[in-house]
Each structure stands twice: as C-alpha cells, then as structure tokens.
Design a protein around this nucleic acid. Structure first.
Lengths: 341, 341
DNA sequence: CCCTTTGCTGTAACCGGTTTCAAGCAAAGT
DNA sequence: ACTTTGCTTGAAACCGGTTACAGCAAAGGG
C-alpha cells in the first residue's frame, strides 16, 4: 500500500512541470512527442491516476450525478421500479465515466438535509428525481442552486424542467377501456400515492376511459395506495369485508395487483374467472404469477437510459432554452388475470 | 439563481477572515461570542453552505462511501437483496452525513474501470462490496489503494478484511435437516452462483445436514443458478422433463423457490402437498405466495446497517489490528410450501 | 540578417476550503 | 510598571489538480 502519488511527484520524476503532466493526462496539444512519451512512461511506471476530487474542484465539475429517490414511504414496487431504472441510468452514465450518488433517507427531515447538501455542497453536476410530485419542494433546492434536473414523471409546476415519462394517462385509459369493454361495470382503481404526478395522470386516464364509453365514475372506487403489495391486498380486503365485490381491479403497480389477487384468492374468489385484475409495470415475474397477470408495460430500463442521456446532454450543451423530454408509450399485455364479465 | 457564495465572500461581508468563518462553520473554539454571532448571521442571511468538494480536498476525506454491486449477471433476487441492503446502509450513513456512491456496470471491463476509478480517484473514503467471491479481484484494488473495505459475505482469501455475513451454512443446514426429517430423500438444491462465498457456505450446510442424518449426497442434485426466478423455474423443468421428480427443493433464494414452485404447478404437481419447497431470504411477499413459502429468513436490512456501522468505525478508529465482523443468525420460517413426505 | 511566427515548456494564479503559526491585546500576576 | 498568560484573530501555506500567460528557442519570410 504505497502512498498515493500526486501530479507534482510525477512531474519531478519525469523532469517536467505539473502543467506538462496535466497536458499529457488530458491529451491536450502542445507537448512534444518525446516529452509526452517520457511522461507517459513515468505515469505507467508508478501507475499514477489523478485525484478526481482535486480535478473536480479545479474544473467545477464533479463527474457525479445524484439519483434522488423518493423517501421510503413508497415501498417495494417503487423499489422494483428503482432497480430497473438504476440499471438503465447506470448503463449510460458509466459509459461516460460519471458516478452515481444515490440519496435515500428514512425520515423526512434527514431526506431534506440530504437533498440540500447535494444541491448546495457542489458534489453533483446534475440530478435525477424519482417520484416527483406537483410543486415538489426538492426541485426548488436544485434549481435555486443552478443544478440541472431531470425528473421521472412530468414535473407539474416546473414548465422548464427536463423529464422522461411514460404515457400514464394513455396506459391507464387503455387498461380501463379494456376492462369496461369486457363488461365490467365496477372497476376498483388502486392508485399510487396522492399527489404523485404519475397517480394524477393515471387517474385522468381512468376517468377518460369512462367518459369515452359513457359511464359514470364512482369516486369511492378510486383509492390511493403506495404501489405496495400490501396496499393492494388491504384495499381489496376492505371492500370484501364491507360486502362490496368489485367486478374488476385496476392497480397502479403489479405488486398491488398481486396483493389484490391474493386477497381475492383468500376470499375464495377466482381471479381470471369471476373477477378481473390488471396491473401496471410488467415486472419480470408478472407472467409467472398465478394467474399470469394482465398488465400495462412500461419500459423502465429505457427510461433510465433516456434520463441519463438527457441529463448528460444538458450538462454538455449548457442551458438551452428548450425543454428536453421524452414520453414513452405503454403497452397493454393481456394474460390470464382478466375475463369477460 | 444567485451564484454560489464562497467562504471568502462571507468573510468579507462579516468583516473577518476566512479562517474565522471556517472556525465558526466547524464549531471550533477560539472565537469570541460576538464574532461568532456576527458570522452566523451573515451565513444565515446568504444561506451559505460550504463547498464539500473543496472541504474534501483539504481534509482528504470525501464523505462518500462506495457500494460495489456485483455486476449485472445476478438478476432480480440479488436485486431485492440489494434494495433492502441499500435501505439499511443508507439509514446509518446519512445519519452521519455520508453519501453513497453506487457502482454498477453492464459489462465486465466497464465494471473494472469503475472500480479502479473509485479505488484510485480518491472519491470515496471506504467501500462495501456485495456478492464477494473467493480471491475477489476487486478487493485487491481497494486494499492496494489503502481504502477500507467491508464485504458482505465472508471474504475468503482476505483474512484481515472486515465483513458482515449471515450464517449461511447454519441456515442451509437447518433447512435441509428440516426437509430430511420430513422424510424427503431426494432434495434438489438450487444454489447461487458458483464461486460466490454464500453459495459455498450454503452447500456446506446442505452436505452437513446429510452427514448428520447419515444420508448420502447425490451430486447431481446440486445445481448452480443465479438466484433468479428463472433459474429456479428452469432447473425444475429440466428435472421434470427428464422424468426425475425430486421430492423436495431447497433454493438459495425465495425467487428461485417461487420459480421452482411455478414449474411444479405447471406440471400439475401440488407444492405443499406432493412436494416441498424451501426458499432463502424471506422477502416481503414470501408469505403471500401461493402456497405461502417456507423459507430461511436473513436480516438483510440489519446487515446493511451493520456494514455501514463497521465501515464508519474503521474510518474513525483508523486501522486497528483486529478484524471487525458480524455474522447474523438465520431463522427457519415454516409456512405451507413444505409437507411430510 | 533581422523580425515575426510557431511550438514547447514552466511559472504562477486559481478552485474553496482547513490549519498552523505568530501577532495583537486585555487581564492577571509580581 | 513590566512580564506573563490566555484568548481572539488574520496571514499564509496547503490539499492536488487546471490553465492563462509569458518566455524562449527554432523555423520561416522578406
């Protein structure tokens, strides 16, 4: 474990100045071939690598980007989302040599400080915010600090912030229309958290489907959850206990859908037979579930990649006037958890 | 979006020197009450926060720790593991103001460079390595660079590296003995990846259980997978296609167990009735599965916390001679996927 | 042959903090 | 009145890079 070398020492060993070593390191021009060769030799000999923190200070670029994860209220399903998203964004970031700093927190105020330190401490060049809400306080921190932001989900209230999104309204509408056309009259909608921009859009889609097919929406059938298995399970149980059996369920996540199905099963109600359930996400084992789950697929991995691309573009191009965004289409995957009523 | 303030400007505005502002910021002594008050006032007025990169350079501490995730070969199950672990370690890290840098990569060599830059770029104070293998190359990078490492799983070949682990051998043994005592003779063991230290230990437990009860181990019944649903599913299918129906399955992850159960179901074989399946992990919805899964619980969240604690301890205490480690016990959770044969 | 241009290199300032050290000054001791 | 002590403060060096600028030698042009 020999001590870490500095550019100064390399310069001395190669008989040149720091400036020249720096030029060699960054492939700048203006270095004679023989000097370059000599410096490179010394660098290789001592397997020197520059200190990235010092470089960051000098360049005012850290090479890190922050991934701001909604604080832990939203549980497993958003976690599966998170994982896929992480894979996607990592893929493009480390292709370009960027590091990823993940901010999570257990409590609301720890989360607050964590965001602040990221915004103001100068430790990230840009951030991606997951699970954005309308007028999200977090965004203000970053914008005020002049840090580029890309949100996942359209950032309501921030008309100039870049984002990636999936066509939530469209996806929800297609799923709901599908259920309505199957003859279901009472479609229980287990939505995501209230205020979540994705929840808002999906609710819009649910309502539009009803309007398009000239049905009334019963407000009691719209319930907010947190994407979790438990929220799907509990919601259906609450309905069953009250003796109200919805003929179909549209859940805002596959896990919630699985929870709903489990609750039906426990009550002896056969899903895909007596009632229909549609999920959202198409997580990898949705098609292994019993029954295989009809669901709305969203390309999470691709969204991660695109978020990374947009952020990097913004970092390179500087702050152009135009908003960069991309909205991905969804796809209804019909399996066996749905049936004509 | 007013420009970021520096300590110099605050000093000027407060009519003092940088040094004094620094002392106030870090609650050092040797500042008169009134000066302190005045400086704090200016700091609050401009809501100044110090640049953490500069501080890092000066202190030779970055306040970041790296989480090195096995590259993406291992899929969803390790991902669930990853999420829980991440929650745990985040909890202790941001309680202490540390940031978490996650290193993943799509390809093996990107992964390599990602590790190197983390080891040598001076961007992290310490790292936690997930999914450690015997003689893991990654560890060498970090150790050579003098960066404290905590591994998850006992780091075979590195007798002085700190680690957290779960009693894999014990857990596997208890599960296997349980199955043997239920009268199962042919227990298919769907292990994790070959070379994984956890896989090695679990296989040891599987063998010990057989030895303790005076049974022979049939080598063909030990199969390596990658913790995924698919690996469980495919493995059982391969057996069934060949006409060999194991009377029980012990899988190294809950997802693999669920895959196995699904394969049995498709073949019309009732799990928890004709055959038994035991998983490993006790992921949150294991008890909602059909049938509810008998499994070996490991306290992943706690392991994350402990890994964080050990790493922070090591960072503070410097490099003491003793190895720090903690091995967590497992617990067999009996549900309905197992039955007397 | 002299002047300009070109190419290579080093000096020094800078990024924004922390810390050592010495100086200034008031209170206390003799 | 003079030294000692203790507290407060600022100047300057340092962390390890990047870069503007200037110097200098060799090459090119008239």
């Amino acid at each position: 474990m020999k001590r870490k070398m500095t550019i100064q020492e390399i310069a001395r060993l190669a008989g040149v100045s720091k400036a020249t070593v720096s030029r060699v390191l960054n492939n700048r021009g203006g270095v004679s071939p023989e000097t370059r060769r000599k410096v490179e030799e010394v660098i290789k000999l001592y397997s020197y690598t520059p200190n990235l923190v010092a470089r960051g200070l000098s360049l005012k670029k850290t090479g890190s980007i922050g991934l701001i994860v909604a604080h832990t209220a939203e549980r497993l399903s958003s976690h599966l989302f998170f994982i896929e998203f992480l894979r996607g964004i990592s893929a493009v970031l480390d292709e370009r040599g960027f590091r990823l700093i993940v901010a999570t927190a257990e409590s609301e105020d720890r989360y607050e400080t964590s965001c602040r330190s990221m915004a103001e401490g100068g430790v990230v060049d840009g951030v991606v915010v997951l699970g954005v809400r309308r007028n999200d306080k977090r965004l203000r921190h970053f914008l005020r600090a002049g840090i580029p932001v890309v949100t996942v989900g359209r950032p309501i209230g921030f008309p100039r912030v870049d984002y990636v999104d999936v066509d939530n309204a469209g996806g929800a509408r297609v799923a709901t229309e599908y259920l309505l056309r199957l003859g279901h009259e009472e479609i229980l909608f287990i939505n995501g958290p209230e205020g979540h921009t994705a929840s808002l859009a999906r609710e819009r889609g649910y309502r539009r489907a009803h309007r398009a097919l000239k049905r009334e929406v019963d407000g009691e059938l719209i319930v907010y959850g947190d994407f979790s298995f438990e929220s799907g399970y509990e919601t259906v149980r609450r309905f069953l206990v009250r003796g109200r059996v919805p003929s179909a369920v549209f859940a805002a996540s596959d896990l919630a859908a699985m929870g709903a199905i489990t609750a039906f099963k426990e009550a002896g109600i056969r899903v895909g037979n007596e009632v229909s359930v549609v999920g959202f996400d198409d997580i990898p084992y949705a098609h292994f579930f019993d029954p295989p789950l009809t669901t709305v697929r969203q390309p999470i991995y691709e969204m991660g990649k695109e978020a990374g691309r947009i952020l990097l573009l913004r970092l390179e191009e500087g702050t152009g006037p135009e908003r960069l965004y991309k909205v991905f289409p969804t796809q209804l995957i019909v399996r066996e958890s749905t049936i004509r009523s």
